[in-house]
Amino acid sequence: MSQPDANVYYVPHKSRWPIIATIGMFMFMLGAANWLNGHDTAGQVILAAGALTIIGMMVGWFGNVIRESMKGTFNSQVDTSFRMGMTWFIFSEVFFFAAFFGALFYIRTFTVPWLGGMGDKGALTNGFIWQGFSATWPTNGPDAVGGSFISTSPWGIPLINTLLLLSSSVTVTIAHHALRAGKRKPLIGFLGLTILLGATFLGLQAHEYWESYVHLNMTLHSGIYGATFYILTGFHGLHVTLGTIMLIVMWLRCARGHFNREHHFAFEAVAWYWHFVDVIWLCLFLFVYIL
């Protein structure tokens, strides 16, 4: 492997992937918007085309970077750039979730108590508009939007899921150590186990959603509780899904021997992401399920 020259800057060549990526994203959004507006067929077709373009682009772009990386094109400076990129990307994700957590906190600290008559403002709001409503949590609001529902207990599936994700964070760390120690077998094994844990988590969450919809009447329409519940757990679930796919890719690359003891940034990036998803879940477990 030829070592890149540390004194000369590295700049990649022209690439067709970015423009393909934007076209994919554009079609995806265009399709989604049309679908939402009731133009079902056109919307679905454009959306699917966009999704396929994005997937193809990912395969192509990342494949490109992987090939370059294996050829040893990147020096340590490029490596640092990649690391910073991933770090700040995760940072932005934190704030994406912060928006929804913020919404939840605001609703629970201010809105629901006001609707229920707390304080001067609440006395007016409740007395003149929402008589008879008293603040509780969970709630579907003074109009009992979506009908009565039962919220899920944290001590069933959510607790199991917490344990699953926590242990998956451990297994991915073990796999990482194995990678650094150059031990292939535990690497493949523990990484595989992580994927399995992630997939189980998703399966259980799907089951929980199904239960909520079918038996507990707890849906997106269930007032503010249903809204905040599904947006938070839903976006988290989406991130777990992405994370699991990324782990699967890493597993394949490990199996093919793409990584060595020093060079395995992609693996680390995915591991960071996985830990991030884990931390978000802990917040969810606490603020959405328990409190």
């Binding site: 939402l36 928006a99 913020g102 919404a103 605001y106 609703i107 201010f110 809105t111 629901v112 609707l115 508009i129 929402w130 709630t139 579907n140 609001g141 003074p142 109009d143 939007v145 979506g146 997106l220 329409h221 007032g223 503010i224 509780y225 249903g226 809204a227 905040t228 599904y230 947006i231």
Partner: peptide, 21 residues
């Protein structure tokens, strides 16, 4: 599009919450 009530007081939400975010 999905029938939630983030910004609707009847469902326990709040239009002002949008403004804060």
């Amino acid at each position: 599009f999905f029938g939630t009530n983030f910004f609707n007081a009847a469902g326990g939400g709040d239009p002002v919450m949008y403004q804060h975010v």
